[in-house]
């Protein structure tokens, strides 16, 4: 265990007399320090590797992947929303055009229907009026004819009465002859 002794001495001499450190030469090539450096490097590096691979890196990786997914998802949603908006606008415009067309047809139909009705009523009224006019004309003609017929009878009677008053007993046949001569002269 001479090495043990040397190690213990190394501690005391190093702090006390720095030449001791120099005596071993260039510090990085001091082989006495190799074993402890290797052992501690293996321990520390091993622990650090486990910490990184089990704890730190999965967390960082998850955050990065989550962010990437989220950005992709958001973009997808935005595209989807834009598509929805576009289709909604298209549907609105289509509906508007349809409504406009329908309103136009309805107005046209109503106008046509009203026109037709008005025409029909007008025709009916005209027909009724024409019938009434014809009827009235017929009755006028009849009345005129009967009136003219009555005029003759009355005139005969009046003429007979006048002649009777003037001439007394004028026979009916001569009176008739006289009246007809007058009427013809008219």
């Amino acid at each position: 265990m001479a090495q043990d002794m040397a190690a213990d001495q190394g501690v005391t001499t190093e702090t006390g007399v720095p030449q001791e450190a120099h005596s071993t030469g260039f510090p990085p090539f001091n082989a006495q320090t190799f074993s402890s450096q290797i052992i501690w490097l293996v321990i520390v590096f091993g622990v650090l590797y486990v910490l990184m691979s089990r704890l730190a890196l999965p967390r960082i990786g998850k955050v990065i992947i989550d962010r990437r997914d989220r950005v992709a998802r958001d973009l997808e949603q935005a595209t989807l929303a834009k598509q929805k908006t576009d289709s909604a606008i298209a549907a609105y415009e289509k509906a508007l055009a349809e409504a406009r067309a329908r309103a136009h047809t309805i107005a046209q139909e109503t106008r046509d229907r009203l026109n037709a009705e008005t025409d029909r009523k007008r025709h009916e009224t005209e027909a009724a009026l024409a019938a009434k006019i014809a009827e009235a004309e017929a009755s006028i003609a009849k009345t005129k004819a009967s009136a003219l017929a009555n005029v003759r009878a009355v005139a005969i009677e009046v003429t007979g009465a006048i002649v009777n008053r003037l001439l007394e007993d004028v026979d009916k046949a001569s009176a008739e002859r006289a009246v007809d001569a007058v009427l013809k002269g008219n």
Partner: peptide
């Protein structure tokens, strides 16, 4: 310079906790 902080021996091999450690 590597100096020992906690001298340690494992199976005759120097495993001291040094300033490097």
């Amino acid at each position: 310079v590597v100096h020992k902080i906690v001298p340690l021996q494992i199976g005759g091999i120097d495993a001291s906790f040094t300033n490097s450690s």
